[in-house]
Amino acid sequence: MLYITTALYAEARPFIEKFSLKKKNAISNLQYFSNDDINLIVTGTGLMSAVMGTTYLLSSHSIQSHDMMFNIGICGAKSSHFTIGEAVICNKIVHHDTKRAFYPDILFQHALQEGSLESFSHIVDLQTDLHLESDMVDMEGAGWYYASSQFMSPHQLVCIKVISDYLDASHITSDQVTTWIDNQLPAIIHVQAALSTIIQPKKEIFNEEEKRWLDNIKTQLRLTVTQYHKLNQLTMQYKIRTKQPLEWIAPYATMPIVSTKQERKEIFEQICKQCLYT
């Protein structure tokens, strides 16, 4: 699943249109769009809004190790090192007020430039007396990262900012914002594809039938908790090591319930022996 947060509807619009996202009912102030693979929330501007929207989005789902969380939006750049309309991946996100820094773990290859982002709780422009530590400024990144990192690993979090101005955002229109993000959509999709290649879903060791057999053996042999744990560990190791199915264990799952501890012990040891070389 891909989760996306943006601050503005204008930033979300290219995703909504490209992926035919449908509006969902959500709590007020948050616009929520989704399809089978993507959940997107428009959080509103500001750090608090970013924290709240992100938390709402992630806490209402069961997060998996192969899920991804993107924060997409426009930002101001400190210098012309970045060009207007360029997409930049943030490798460091600083909360300006507390100076706390966050570091997304960029493990995937990509073709974009990287830079550092500083998140303010107020609008920043050339008139503001600033000691900027970072290359770019916004009003959400640090809040988004802080909230997301409560649910996900640092390599699942990707913050992509599209440069909208050099600390003078007074003349930006919402159509411009949508155009900038829309132009960068292929690059953003590319990043998402690169990340999804390296975070494949976890492979289950046992199939459903094997899980049933193991459960039945627990009942038929009246296994103790410790024995059942050992059975799971041994059969798991057997499967990883041999890459063979567990079919030979099936007859034990349908045998009559054991009547004595001695009988249980003998059969259990027999299974253990079959799992492991000596």
């Binding site: 570091y103 990287e114 690993s153 390599h155 975070i199």
Partner: peptide, 26 residues
Amino acid sequence: ATIIEIDNYKHVFSRPRQQFALQKEA
């Protein structure tokens, strides 16, 4: 290499929920 300045190595090394095995690949 992309250089990223940090205050303390633990801010990167000790982040919660890191994936050791994935990180070994990159």
